[in-house]
């Protein structure tokens, strides 16, 4: 089939309302065309392109804030095995208060609260391991 004829076919296809066409010519030539409609293209984009947020340390549900782990490591609620925990459920915390420690590569990293409120839930047990993004506390 000549190029010009194929080109003509493509143009006609573009102007028509049909979305796909399959033609088998007697000489064995096969032509298959499919038109992407605008709608499906847009939906595809919306479904497949999640938004990535850099600041994952906190997530808000209604008035609650979820504090997430900024690193991989081991979670500790107390500064040492014999001391009292930094926070307990029901305790009021201010911005900048230490909530817990995450040990990573033998370093103790103090995790501070970036919001003010009451601790409503502690989601990880003392001594458990956490990943990046593991939810640690819910603050209300």
């Amino acid at each position: 089939m000549e190029y010009e004829k194929i080109k003509q076919l493509m143009e006609d296809m573009g102007n028509s309302k049909i979305s796909s066409i399959n033609i088998d010519f007697p000489d064995g030539t096969k032509i298959s065309m499919k038109k992407e409609s605008q709608d499906t293209a847009i939906n595809y984009k919306a479904d497949n392109m999640p938004e990535y947020k850099e600041h994952t340390e906190e997530r808000t549900i209604e008035n609650k804030k979820i504090i997430k782990s900024p690193m991989v490591g081991t979670f500790y609620l107390k500064p040492s095995p014999t001391s009292a925990p930094y926070v307990e459920v029901g305790k009021h915390v201010n911005k900048g208060d230490t909530l817990c420690i995450i040990e990573a590569m033998k370093l103790m990293n103090e995790i501070e609260s970036d919001s003010e409120g009451n601790v409503v839930q502690i989601l990880v047990k003392d001594g458990e391991t956490v990943e990046y993004g593991t939810e640690l506390f819910i603050i209300e």
Partner: peptide, 14 residues
Amino acid sequence: SYLDIKNIIEAANI
């Protein structure tokens, strides 16, 4: 993430 040495080593540790 994939270039964060600390998190990768710690992931191996835990």
